[in-house]
Amino acid sequence: MSSPTSTAPPFRVSEFMGPYLVEMCVALVLYGITTAQTYVYMLNYKTDVITLKTTVAAVWIIETIHTVFLFRQVWFCAIMGFGDYNAIGSIEWSIIVSFPR
């Protein structure tokens, strides 16, 4: 009877996912700060010009999209690719879009 073959990854999964999860936590804290600042700004500065309000809203929307892409990458690596070392070691399109050159 043959045993199932298991190929070890060329890296330790904790060395890859550990720092990524720390980065994710830092990004979420910064996203929360950005959201709070945007909310306070929109409540307190109703008389500002529309271009400034649009810029603030655009920064918040871009940060929201960035956070969604980070969550998608963590979901892909930790949930969808659980046990698949090739999936953990690959970079998905959401991260490529999130960090342009």
Score class of each variant (00 low, 15 high):
Met42Glu: 05
Val74Trp: 11
Val68Arg: 00
Cys25Ile: 15
Ile62Val: 15
Leu70Met: 14
Val29Phe: 13
Phe69His: 11
Met42Asn: 12
Asp48His: 10
Tyr85Ser: 12
Phe71Gly: 15
Val26Cys: 14
Ile95Pro: 08
Met24Asp: 09
Arg101Met: 00
Leu70Pro: 05
Ser98Ile: 03
Ala8Asp: 12
Met42Tyr: 06
Thr38Tyr: 00
Thr38Arg: 00
Ile61Arg: 04
Tyr85Met: 12
Phe76Gly: 01
Gly32Gln: 06
Phe76Ala: 06
Ile50Glu: 11
Tyr31Pro: 04
Asn86Asp: 13
Val13Leu: 15
Glu15Asp: 15
Arg12Met: 04
Thr67Pro: 06
Gly18Leu: 02
Leu70Phe: 11
Thr47His: 07
Phe76Glu: 14
Ile91Gln: 08
Gly89Pro: 13
Ser3Met: 02
Glu92Met: 00
Thr55Asp: 04
Pro100Val: 02
Thr47Asn: 07
Cys25Lys: 04
Tyr39Cys: 14
Leu30Val: 05
Gly89Ala: 13
Phe99Ile: 12
Asn44Asp: 08
Val22Trp: 03
Asn44Cys: 14
Gly89Tyr: 08
Val68Thr: 13
Ala57Arg: 07
Thr51Asn: 06
Gly89Ser: 07
Pro9Asp: 04
Tyr41Met: 10
Ile91Glu: 11
His66Val: 00
Pro9Leu: 05
Cys25Met: 15
Asp48Gln: 06
Ile50Trp: 13
Ile33Asn: 07
Leu21Cys: 13
Thr64Leu: 02
Met80Gln: 05
Ser14Ala: 13
Ile33Glu: 09
Gln37Ala: 10
Thr34Trp: 00
Arg101His: 02
Val29Tyr: 09
Thr51Ile: 11
Met42Ile: 07
Ser3His: 07
Val49Met: 10
Ala58Trp: 08
Gln73Phe: 03
Ala27Leu: 02
Glu23Lys: 00
Gln37Asp: 08
Thr51Arg: 09
Phe69Gln: 05
Leu21Met: 13
Val26Trp: 09
